[in-house]
Amino acid sequence: MNIKIKQIGKHIITGVTIASALLSPVLTSAQDTVKIGANYELSGDAASYGTQMLEGLELAVEEVNANGGVLDGQEIEIVSYDNQSNVTESASVAQRLVAEGVVGVVGPATTGNTEAQLPIFTEANIPMVSPSATDDDITFDSAGDVLEYFFRVCFNNSYQGSAGATFAAEDLSATNAIVFVDQSSDYSRGLADNFNSEFESRGGTIVNEDSFTAGDTDFSAILTTALTQDFDVIYIPAYYTEAGLIIKQAREMGIEQPIIGPDGFSSEVLLDLAGTENANDIYYTDHFSNESEEESVQDFLTAFEEKYGKEGGTWNALGYDAAMLIIDAIERSGSTDPQAITDAMADTIEFAGVTGTFAIDENHNPVKPTVMIQLQEGEIVSAENVSAE
């Protein structure tokens, strides 16, 4: 069964008609549907991530509904709003979703927008699953206790930062590294700290750490400094918007050393900005690879292409797994009660996701390896599991 999705302004409404939506500010649905909320960046700076995650959610729900829904035949209904890549709007969306009576929520894509919704859903006792908020501390409250209602299906920054350093030292035999940090981003600083610590623990030296700020477009100053250094690899813990331009400018200035990044590199926009001719010896940690021969991955990619007419990727897969983790918990708990769903997610031992089979640990993180993607001339030429060990 196909999901009906209508968009009015900033709001995406699933399972209702335009007419009924216009008659009332509150979404209505049949009593036999189970509402899953989506708080995603569908416009603004992080729209490339949020839009892809919503596609993953839509595919998951379409498949579940086509197979009879959940429990006693109830269909899943998506209630989705655009948080506009803005923390204030993310909190506002969370309040709307509570009012809608959702049993669980997926999103947002970024750590900052996720943090904005945490107190609202925590107070409402509604479980949240983040596809991609990788900040180390986001699953904890200010007292250091694990947040009962928050889970994620992505690995955290310390893990992928350390995995990147391990790969640089062990697989690339690097001994000297340069690090470029986005000082405006907790994401970037956290990754850099963990990369630096792990790299140095393996006998490596950070010969220079330089900084930039999100929104910068000219990186000639830090790259000129890099040209005066003796180094084997550059680590850029950043999003594709700046990373793509740094790669382009670095290669055009004659810097040929390998460049390593995090999951923020995982976007076609990176290649648009860098130019495929410059995307050589680029490596980044990721949650998923289209190159996997796992049957579940290939089935997902086939279904995704049939639905959207394009190839699925990391953020689609994470959005799909986030949705399926909630749906799996509904089935295992035998209930649509948010507390029962929360308890079932916390007890997850072996969830077979398309980004890997994993358990949920005591800190509400998935236990799974990361994938190191290698690009040559803009094409993925290898994808290997790596760890921080």
Rank of each mutant, 00 (worst) to 15 (best):
F265R: 01
F265S: 05
D145Q: 15
D141C: 03
F151N: 08
G112S: 03
E198I: 03
S188W: 01
G244L: 00
R96I: 10
G44R: 09
G309S: 15
S130T: 11
D321F: 02
T205V: 04
S292W: 08
T285D: 05
Y49V: 01
V153S: 01
E58Q: 05
L245F: 03
D135R: 04
D361W: 11
Q257N: 15
Y284E: 07
F155H: 11
V129W: 01
N113S: 10
I349Q: 09
E89V: 04
A116H: 04
V153I: 10
E242L: 06
A99E: 14
K307H: 12
D216T: 08
W315H: 12
T213V: 15
D321L: 05
T205R: 02
M1D: 13
I236T: 09
A340R: 06
A116M: 13
D272C: 12
T17C: 13
S266P: 05
A279P: 08
D171P: 06
G44L: 09
E115C: 05
M253Y: 04
F155N: 08
T241Q: 07
P119F: 01
P258N: 14
R189M: 13
A19S: 11
I373N: 00
S48V: 08
T276S: 15
V105Y: 10
A303V: 00
E198C: 05
V70P: 01
Y149I: 04
I360Y: 02
V98P: 01
I360V: 14
